[in-house]
Structure formats: C-alpha cells, structure tokens
Design a protein around this nucleic acid. Structure first.
Lengths: 346, 346
DNA sequence: CTGAAAGCGCTTACAG
DNA sequence: CTGAAAGCGCTTACAG
C-alpha cells in the first residue's frame, strides 16, 4: 500500500494552494518520504536499484503532484539539451513544411524535440536565429537553405553540431550534408529537354546565395550541352516570384519556351501567368518543376518535376544527430535519391 | 584599450584546445578580469551600472570566446523559460503551417521561441507531447485542435498557461481562446446556400472531437433552417479523405449537390473526385470550403470559402502570452473576423 | 561601479 | 537498496 511518510500539514497546504509553480523533485521526494536521488533514479529509469514499494510511493506522489521532471534542470546537469533547432528559409513552403514534419517526427523517436525557426530568406534574421539556437544549447542545428554569413562560419568553426540540408555548406565549412545531388538532378532535366527536342531553353532558378540553386542550374546547363543559349532568371522560391517572371517571359509569345523552374512554387507561378494569357501547357509552353511537393498530386497533377523525397530527410538527419561522433566522414554525407516525374507539362 | 588581466597560460590552452564544450560565463569573467556578476549584467542589458572600460573588456572577451549566454542556466535561475510549445493536429496542412509561421514570427518579437509539435490527429501522441511541453517548462502551450483527454484536463486544472486556438476548450476547462466564431461562419454559409437557391445539401464536416467542426456544422444547419434534410459525413481534414467522401457522394450523379466542406483540403479532394467523373463545378456540383488557405489564390482560385485570417493569430496569441496575468477574463477570448469569399465554385 | 554568495532543479559517483 | 553532497550556468539582492 501507498503510505505517506513525513507529511506535515504545511506540505499539504503547499500542495493544495500552490498551483502557481510546478512541483520539483524535492516536492516528490518529501511527499514520498525518500531522497531526491531516489526520485531521480525512478524518472531516469534506473528502477532496478529501487525497491518495488519505493517505486510505488514515488509513482503515486508524482501523480498526485502532477510532477514532470524539468528538462531545464536535467539539461543543465547533463550539459546537453534535447532540443534540435531547424532553421528554414520559408516555413510556409509546403516542401519545407514536409521536411520539417519529417524531422520532427524522426527526432521524437529519439526523445528529442524540434524548434522550427523561420529565417524568411533573410541573412540578418538567420544570424539572429543562429544566436538563439546557440543560446538554447541546441543538440544540433539543422540548416535548410543556409546563407553564407560570417556568423555561420564562426559557429561552424567552433562547433560540430551543424547539419546542412539540401544545400551544401559553403566552401571552407566542414559539416554533414543531407540532400540530393542537385547537379545530377539538374543535368537529368537538361538531358530530358534535349531528348524531347525542346528548344528555347529558360531557367528560372533560385537565389544564387544558395548552393543548391546554382548546382541545379549548372547541372541543367551541362545536361543541355554547352552550345545552347539559355535565358536565365534568378528568382525567389515563391509562386509570386514565379508569376512575375512568367509574365515577363510570356510577354514574348512568339516562341515555345521550355522552362526549368528552381522549384514547384516557381512553376505554379509561371503556370498561372500562362493561364492568364491563354497559353497552353505543354503545347505552347513546357514547364518543369523541382521538389514534387505533396500539393502536386492534388492541385497540380500536370506538373513534370524532380521528386525530392521529403520524408526521407527526417530519419537521415535524426540518425546523423544520434550517431556516435566522428564516424567515418563519408557517412556524414547522406545523398538521397531523386526521381524524374514526367507528367503532362513537359 | 582592451586588456587581459589574470590570464594564465592554462587559460589560453583551454581556449585553444577546448572546442568541445561551449564557453560559460565564468570563462568570460576570467578572460575579461571581472566577476561573473558583471558579465551577467552586461548580457542582461544592465550596462548603466558598468564602466565603459569594463563593458569593452567583456564584449571583447565574449567575442573571442564565441560566448552566448545559456538559456538553460538563465531559465533555471529565473524559473521561466522562453519557449512556447505549439501543438498542431497536422503540421503539413497549409493553413496550420501559416498559423504556426505567424505565431513563430510574433513570438520572436517578444524574445520567445516556438517549438512546433505535431500531434498527428492522435490523442496519445498529443498527451505525450503535452508531457514534453511540461518537461520543457514551456512559457505557454498553444493548442490548435486540442483533443479532450484526461491529461489535458489535468494540466488545464493545474496551470494557466494553456491557450486554445480555433477550437474552444472542452466544457469545464477555463482557458483563453483565439479564433473565429465557427458557428457564425457556418451559419453564413448555410444562409448563402439558401439565398442562392441551392438544394440537396451536404456537409462533409471535420472530426467531431474538435469543437470547431461541430460548431461549423451546427451553424450551417441553423443557417439552412431546420426543415432541410442534410447529408452529413464526418471526415478527417485532408484531401485524401475529402476525395474518398467525394467519390462516395458522387456515385449518385442524379442530383446537383451543394457541399459544405469542413476545410479547404476536404474541398480539394471533393473537387478532384468531381473532375475524375467529369462533373462540372458549379454547374453540376456546388462546393464551399473553409480557411481560405494561401494555396487557393494560386492553385484553386475557383474555390468559394470562408477566409480565416491565419496571419492574425500570431499577434493575438503573442499578446495574450505576454499580457499581465489575470486581466479581464473577456480580454482573454480573442474572436477574429472571418470573411465569406465567394468565387466560382458556389 | 563591482564582487561574493546563494540558489534555481536536476543527476551521479561515492559511501554505506 | 538508499542518501548526502557536489555542481551544471546563470541572476540578483546585498554589501561595499
């Protein structure tokens, strides 16, 4: 039976009155009549070394008090937190949202939580969030779309808990990378365009400060072969921007352009610009996207694109974070597979 | 000039060798030749009480060491963390993603970070995440789409840092609410259907364990007037589910149904089912959505829907979290406006 | 303007 | 099987 030892009246009052602050390990210890060490052992799963009766006492006391061990106290003591910060360029991008969901899910299985931080495609913002992540003593910092800044370099040189996602670390930074081979994917699209006999090539690629954008573009150019002229536009990875570029491009209706877009969002924008001008896809305009985010299946089933396996990122990243440090350097680069999804738009 | 006082050789070695663990306030204190109290004052902005020379010393030492104050130490000392946990039913839903982005953004301005936790429409999962949030000693727990469980009730009775978003707390739980008036919105849709002369009413509403779903449905029924028969289907808030319900419904092609969907995702699914059967919208089928998530503008510009102002949630929630406690109870219920967006599908 | 000291909630090696 | 004690990184009232 559960018995309360050493439970003075003052204690009862404290329990009943004090909803203001959460109970501590000491409260549980006092209520169950054991030391904090024992309570701690209970909550860290070292139950082999506790008598069944004591276990029962502690369990009940914790329940009565509504006690959950403080991660803050634990983190301080163990000198490591269970928080992983994920820095993304645009949290409202559906592909990014899927990658983040995948990471969150996978980390949970290791008992880690994820803080999502939205850099909004802004270097200063990113640096501020990096500082925050450092302040949290994040177990790891996962950077999707990192912008190369002095602060990032400084951090990378001091710590080894940075992980780069889908865009490689800038030259000079040594850190694990998880993502596809962007060059190869771009190459495949270029080659496909040539094989299909398309002409009038256009690349609406993403921002140059992301290595991924440049790699995709370079791959595309290489896949086309060197001699081809290619119209190149730099664009943010948004529908709005794609729409604007599309309007610009389609002002000239004399040619049938074949457009490789930096991601699906840009492709959606271009498509809309085409729709508004009664330009048919693919008859009058060829469009190729990138990512194959989940919306395609439902809202843009016509879009040919490169499928990036969003839901494989989480497991790969979680594994990296929990791997014994300093395993083979090669194991710390995870190259995920991509797939050409050719549908009707190209 | 910046001068290093009391800087023994051992210290230098420690700095140069030790990239393993982050520097502490003591390291900075030693390097700049002051006490930790002074360093702390510097980082908490109490610079009025420090001499300019000292300030300079501390700043430089911190820079050399790459020091950022530990939120863990700070949180433990101040007995409050700067983390807000946001629990969502489905992080990959674009509307949810927008609300989360809005919250994250708004909290940042108060120096708070947001942890996104994905309950995946699962009560057990939710309870586990609630426990985690409690472990983190979250400043606040924001629940979008809370499922009524004993654990949630227990927490709500012990703490006052829970905030319910877009779905009201279950009866018996006293906590602030931020969201629209779901009943009124449903009512408006019902009334609109009647005014337009639609018949053959269908409601594909969200899960009943969310108060928001039921409120929308009840409002819709009230708006139609009591005498009308209405086909009712319960459905998860996903495209997949909407698609399935749509297929079921449209097996009977003899009538022109007028369908009120629990959210836009369901509406997309129904639309797709219609497309596949060559059923025209709105000629052969009327569809009304809910949320007006950002995709509509680009990928479903035909969808009539109720616009819920996703980006107003963040500021409202952040304000609530940072408000002096126990302000007027009424101020702790924030009812945001909704808008009827009638486009071509209804 | 500055420092010594206490203490926030934990865990664990050590001693019994 | 259990407890006393040290210490993780901070902040702040107090004393000077």
């Amino acid at each position: 039976m559960w018995r309360l030892r050493n439970w003075p009246r003052a204690e009862i009052d404290r329990i009943e009155l004090c909803m203001s602050k959460p109970p501590t390990i000491r409260d549980v210890a006092r209520l169950s009549g054991v030391s904090t060490a024992t309570v701690s052992r209970y909550f860290t799963g070292k139950t082999d070394a506790i008598s069944p009766e004591t276990i029962e006492n502690v369990r009940n006391a914790a329940k009565v008090l509504g006690y959950t061990p403080s991660e803050i106290g634990r983190s301080l003591r163990l000198a490591r937190s269970r928080v992983v910060v994920m820095l993304v360029p645009d949290a409202t991008n559906p592909f990014t949202a899927d990658v983040a969901a995948s990471v969150e899910q996978a980390l949970k299985e290791y008992g880690l939580s994820m803080v999502l931080a939205n850099a909004s495609e802004n270097a200063e913002q990113q640096d501020r969030l990096l500082a925050d992540a450092q302040g949290l003593r994040a177990r790891a910092i996962v950077l999707q779309g990192a912008i190369d800044t002095p602060r990032l370099r400084d951090m990378a040189s001091r710590q080894d808990n940075l992980i780069f996602v889908n865009r490689r670390p800038a030259p000079g930074i040594v850190a694990p990378y998880v993502g596809i081979d962007n060059f190869a994917a771009g190459f495949a699209v270029g080659k496909y365009f040539v094989d299909r006999g398309y002409e009038n090539y256009v690349a609406i690629h993403g921002p140059r400060h992301y290595s991924g954008s440049t790699e995709r573009l370079d791959g595309f150019l290489a896949g086309l072969g060197e001699m081809r002229p290619v119209l190149q536009f730099e664009s943010p990875y948004t529908m709005e921007a794609g729409y604007r570029q599309g309007q610009l491009l389609l002002a000239d209706r004399s040619r049938r352009y074949a457009v490789f877009c930096g991601n699906d969002m840009i492709a959606y924008g271009v498509y809309r610009a085409a729709l508004e001008k009664d330009i048919r896809v693919p008859e009058d305009l060829v469009i190729f996207g990138f990512d194959d985010n989940r919306l395609n299946e439902w809202l843009a089933p016509w879009l040919s694109t490169v499928k990036v396996p969003a839901f494989e990122f989480g497991p790969a990243i979680a594994k990296l974070i929990n791997a014994p440090i300093a395993t083979n350097d090669q194991d710390r680069n995870v190259i995920l597979p991509f797939t050409m999804m050719t549908r009707t738009s190209a």
